[in-house]
Nucleic acid binder design. Structure first.
Lengths: 337, 337
DNA sequence: CTGAAAGCGCTTACAG
DNA sequence: CTGAAAGCGCTTACAG
């Protein structure tokens, strides 16, 4: 007994194939008697509706495509898990495609995804070519960029308020009395990297401070470690480093300790994201939290809304985060919040 | 222009719909002239074959279902990424279902998966009811348990040689001169937790040593931390702790440090997995490596083989790992490898 | 409420 | 090599 079909169930239950279909279609009408007979027969045969056939005729696959570049940064597995849970609760599932972090790579993968007739696409930490963005729109499949902004492509974006957040993190450092503040920035090829750097610069300018150093850490642990070593090895070293994300900040802390410097004491380190590891004692990282839960909710809201509405339009959502105080950075006198 | 179909391409190219299909079906025959006309028309229209329709008629969806319980333990995101990459290279994709770590929860999710006509299922770190295992077999869909063994259910298993590995890790500790060795075990409801504990016990017995303590850490960070505090707070404390996996070992190290103990100096800590974080300086964890790459390869081999073969049978693969020496545990004199 | 029938977009024998 | 036709397993008007 390989695949059981609705026709077989119908035969056994003594009803038409349409009746079986109705029993398994939410909202369709069937008498209590029919429902009972069909459910009974279905159970005996071990029948489940074929989701693929259903998708073909209804035009809705209830599959959402997720494109991710790398899961090394703990922020993404966390987001993936939340996304999957929330989507499952709504009867959707995630078809996962890993992609190289290049526009061509992502484009190829998104095309594949479109072939699967996904109802929507979430692209995490990657960008699409504008050509592909147009194709997706033509195919009427909603795309939302998660944790990445891309203006003008007609795509929806969900990010935290990166510029604000970075500004506030930097202000925290300034108020803490630091005045040799360096920034190991997020990848400048990504909106998050640029926006956070802009926020840093804004706060420094407002305080009349020049950055001690400002380099691109590429969202890479080894690169960030190397940057930290360079910055903190000279005759004069910074008294604080604002790092473009937690993943790099962990590397920076490791590098600093390797130099004999104690974060939170000799030098302050602040990250961005607040991944679970940031709270672990080994790092105890002060960081600006990106509210993953709310980012996930917003992403799903947009998707669901666009799937339902005939005339979808791109939305840009920025969610405010908050600074989480821990031990890796000196806390200003009387600092609240 | 919403969805472009093969019929539209056929009309434009001046050939039959079947011809279009053949051009896009690997291995089907079409003249160079036809191929050219069709490709041209397809490009103009932005046509891609509908994978769902293809799956329906061919009976192969080229989708593999992945069931995961939790992504907190870094071992799983790493495995997920490798799995996805390797599968993509073969033209398959991962439909991800998150499941509560209970048999009922997993069963429900696997049923959903079967509804999607997946070509195979990978269940990572979860178990299936034997009832469901039978249903999967009846439906002829191969299931492989990743990092979990379950005998007698007729399912394939891929694990590392957990018992051996744990024995070797424990022997390493014994040869290092430790004699008050505790074990904070992996969850005893899981084969990995039990097998590693068995390996620990085996080595201890062989050396004529009684465990200083042996408790179930449930693969949970907070539980493991609490265990470590209890074990290391008395008047006599262990000189070594073998921990059931890295994820717990990080918590154990944090707890120990909180007690003023320095891992690798005052007390040795050995983990199991060798996740990337184990190599980071903040933990510098000596651990027994589970070869993820080879586990992934084996998983995919089994799946591909069973998808192709008419009469598939369950396979059980155990892959040998190796001890990775770092700073969290004292190294025996003259220890090699 | 229910059944017969059309159709979703493909692949694949079957003739030619 | 190529086209006409059947069929994959469903949902959904359409009559009754």
């Amino acid at each position: 007994m390989n695949k059981v079909t609705s026709a077989e169930v119908a035969a056994r239950a003594g009803v038409s194939q349409s009746a079986v279909s109705r029993v398994f279609t939410p909202g369709a009408s069937a008498s209590a008697k029919t429902v009972k007979k069909v459910k009974q027969a279905a159970k005996e045969l071990g029948y489940r509706p074929n989701s693929l056939a259903r998708a073909m005729v209804s035009g809705k696959s209830r599959i959402i495509g997720l494109v991710v570049a790398y899961l090394e940064n703990q922020f993404y597995p966390v987001a993936l898990e939340r996304l999957s849970n929330a989507l499952q609760a709504k009867g959707y599932h995630l078809l996962v495609f890993t992609a190289p972090n290049s526009t061509e790579g992502v484009d190829k993968v998104v095309e594949d995804l479109m072939g699967y007739q996904v109802d929507g696409i979430i692209a995490a930490s990657v960008s699409l070519s504008s050509d592909l963005a147009e194709r997706a729109q033509a195919a009427e499949i909603p795309v939302v960029l998660f944790n990445r902004a891309q203006k003008g492509a007609g795509l929806s974006n969900v990010t935290s308020a990166n510029r604000n957040g970075a500004r506030r993190a930097t202000e925290f450092l300034i108020e803490g009395g630091h005045n040799r503040i360096a920034h190991i920035a997020g990848w400048q090829g990504a909106s998050t990297g640029r926006d956070r750097q802009a926020g840093f610069t804004e706060a420094m300018d407002a305080a009349g401070l020049a950055p001690f150093a400002m380099v691109d850490g590429m969202y890479s642990r080894p690169v960030a470690m190397e940057c930290a070593r360079q910055i903190a090895s000279g005759s004069q070293i910074p008294d604080a480093i604002f790092v473009g994300n937690d993943h790099m900040a962990f590397g920076v802390i490791d590098a600093l300790r390797g130099l004999g410097l104690i974060p939170g004491q000799d030098i302050s380190v602040v990250g961005y994201d607040d991944v679970p590891l940031a709270a672990w004692e080994a790092y105890d990282l002060t960081t600006f939290r990106q509210p993953v839960n709310r980012m996930v909710e917003a992403t799903i809201d947009i998707l669901m809304h666009q799937i339902d509405s005939a005339e979808p339009h791109a939305e840009t959502i920025e969610i405010e985060g908050k600074l989480i105080l821990r031990g890796s950075a000196r806390i200003p006198q009387g600092w609240t919040t």
